[in-house]
């Protein structure tokens, strides 16, 4: 078997169970991004590029600090800067590190038609295995957070791996390692929730009464969580969805429609079979031919 920490518990487009004997007894992992501590230095972006050997285009300034301007196959994480004026007239510069949320119930994995292109490990990390990716982009359709990006060059899907290769050998993700202010921390999900609770208490003492943890239940919780000053308004943070869940459309598409469609096709064919056996073919006999001949001659 592969490294224990990379035990696969869920595999895209696979109808049989994955090996399940081993469990993540130490608990699932999580990365906690404390937006209230983040200074937007982009060291995480550099660490991500360096560790993963990624180099995006040298772009241009679009009037924002967000650079590169969007996630791409070469930028698996980026800081998104939002200016927000509070009711009291104070300015806030909300800086959110965007990237894969590693949902417990991943929309990408649900949508993926290629067996093993998207997997979920026992520790909760959702990973893309590009060698199995067929490039259809269904993961983009499935993701409630608009994260996966399809390369224009190789047409494979890419996103943050939560440094599954590092985590597999007991290291924290590269962005966590490099974060100078400790705004990104990593550990078991339980520990991270506890840490978040302490941070939230501190924030509340500083007047952020709606401070809270972003661990949206709609996707079963996530393995990347945020501490937000305004947990009641996640959309302030560069449109972080307030109640993300796998779209009903995707649910229908990748849920009921699959068995129903096969059933409908099979039923149609079976009906034909029954009809053929029960009632039989509709044949033209000599009488019909004779009648036709008669009519032809009459007409002539």
């Amino acid at each position: 078997m592969a490294l224990q920490s990379l035990d696969i518990v869920r595999r895209s487009a696979t109808t049989t169970p994955s090996p399940q004997a081993r469990e993540a007894h130490a608990g699932e992992v999580a990365k906690l991004i404390d937006v209230t501590k983040c200074i937007g230095c982009k060291a995480c972006q550099v660490a991500c590029m360096e560790w993963n050997d990624l180099r995006d285009e040298i772009g241009s300034c679009t009037g924002h600090y967000d650079n590169p301007a969007d996630l791409s196959e070469h930028s698996w994480t980026l800081m998104r800067f939002s200016e927000h004026e509070t009711a009291a007239g104070d300015l806030e510069w909300l800086i959110r590190k965007d990237g894969c949320m590693h949902c417990a119930d991943p929309g990408c994995l649900k949508a993926c038609p290629a067996p093993g292109a998207i997997v979920q490990y026992a520790n909760g990390i959702v990973d893309f295995h590009e060698e199995n990716c067929i490039g259809c982009g269904y993961c983009v359709t499935g993701c409630p957070f608009n994260v996966p990006r399809i390369s224009k060059r190789d047409h494979k899907a890419y996103k943050c791996t939560l440094c599954s290769d590092r985590v597999a050998v007991g290291l924290e993700p590269a962005c966590v390692k490099t974060c100078p202010t400790g705004a990104i921390v990593f550990g078991t999900k339980d520990d991270m929730k506890q840490h978040a609770a302490e941070r939230i208490e501190d924030l509340k003492s500083r007047g952020f009464e709606h401070a809270g943890l972003y661990d949206p239940a709609g996707v079963g919780g996530t393995h990347v969580m945020y501490v937000l000053h305004h947990a009641d308004q996640p959309q302030l943070y560069a449109n972080l969805p307030a109640e993300p869940k796998i779209s009903a459309m995707v649910g229908l598409w990748k849920g009921m429609s699959k068995p129903l469609a096969l059933l409908a096709i099979a039923a149609t064919a079976f009906a034909g079979f029954l009809h053929y056996i029960g009632i039989g073919p509709n044949e033209v006999d000599e009488d019909d031919e004779a009648a036709a001949r008669r009519e032809m001659e009459e007409t002539r």
Binding site: Y138, T141, S247, M249, V250, L252, W253, S257, L260, A261, A264, I265
Partner: peptide, 12 residues
């Protein structure tokens, strides 16, 4: 997303 569903239904 809607198109994905439409495509599947129409194909069926």
């Amino acid at each position: 997303r809607l198109a994905a569903v439409v495509h599947a239904v129409a194909a069926t």
